[in-house]
Design a protein around this nucleic acid. Structure first.
Length: 280
DNA sequence: CTTATTCCCTGATTGC
DNA sequence: TGCAATCAGGGAATAA
């Protein structure tokens, strides 16, 4: 599913291709459902027609398309959303819910099998995502910041990693992967992590996100990049979606449980429930 | 303020 | 083989 690396992949792919392009028309499928809360398909098309893209930015899992005039169209791909740049003559993409025609004859196709994705038109792009936590790949995000986000919390560490108010952009895949690399059990109380564990986790979060961006994201399920290409990070998964398969570090079968309502994968040996001893 | 639960959606998978 | 139940999960809403 699209997490920070998948959204960043799309941003990089599309930025150069939509910059300066004017929206000629926006067409939605026949469902009558708009991905924009509070705006129907026709209203949304009216609001976007004639506007130009200035740049694309990202905040956590949100893709922000800055428009001329100072406002922005904010996309969230949720589970199955993709934004793909195509020519009209390219073969159809399955589950295309909307098409944005551009003034150079190309188009952006919004595909979203499960229709969870959202568009949000805002006049205040700087505050497009209120309450969201720090960007984990930013130079300004320190070990101390992570420590402060975890301090005193009794919730499982994985639940805190998934909480977008604490850290922006981690989802189920990269939470599991970061914890495996750090050797930390996903059900450990967040506030119980030692300084050494917090340092390891800070490092592995950044490592796994950076690698995933290099590999253009994980495409085991639905994600494709802005040109329709698959990523290859799924080949590097060490925990996520590997139930019963051998841990790449120690060979122990990867276990599966449920944390914060999400399927959770970990190595019972490398990620012990109690120890603070090293791993990763 | 906190943590836990439900719901949205639809194709894939599982169970009988 | 067929059909129903379950599963996948980000985040908003709701509950406690």
């Amino acid at each position: 599913m699209p997490e920070l690396p998948e959204v960043e992949t799309t941003r990089r792919d599309l930025e150069v291709r939509v910059r300066g392009r004017r929206i000629v028309e926006v067409c939605f499928d026949q469902s009558g459902v708009s991905p924009a809360r509070g705006l129907g398909p026709l209203e949304l098309a009216d609001a976007l027609r004639g506007r130009s893209f200035e740049r694309l930015s990202r905040r956590g899992k949100y893709l922000i398309a800055h428009l001329d005039g100072g406002d922005a169209l904010v996309f969230h791909r949720r589970m199955t959303g993709n934004l793909i740049h195509r020519r009209p003559t390219d073969p159809p993409d399955p589950f295309t819910r909307a098409t944005i025609a551009l003034d150079d004859g190309s188009e952006l196709r919004w595909t979203d099998m499960r229709r969870f994705g959202t568009w949000d038109l805002t006049s205040d792009p700087e505050n497009a995502v209120p309450g969201i936590g720090p960007e984990p790949l930013s130079d300004e995000w320190t070990v101390d910041d992570l420590g402060a986000a975890l301090a005193g919390r009794t919730a499982p560490i994985k639940a805190v990693l998934l909480d977008q108010r604490r850290i922006a952009g981690l989802g189920n895949i990269y939470a599991d992967e970061s914890l495996h690399l750090a050797g930390i059990h996903p059900e450990r109380a967040a506030g119980s992590l030692s300084r050494d564990e917090i340092e390891r986790l800070h490092r592995t979060i950044r490592e796994v996100l950076a690698l995933a961006i290099d590999l253009q994201g994980s495409s085991a399920q639905h994600h494709v990049g802005g040109l329709g290409q698959r990523g290859s990070m799924q080949d590097e998964w060490r925990a996520y979606h590997r139930t019963g398969e051998p841990c790449r570090t120690c060979g122990t079968a990867i276990a599966r449980t449920r944390v914060a309502g999400r399927g959770t994968h970990f190595c019972p040996r490398c990620q012990p429930a109690t120890s603070t001893a090293s791993a990763g």
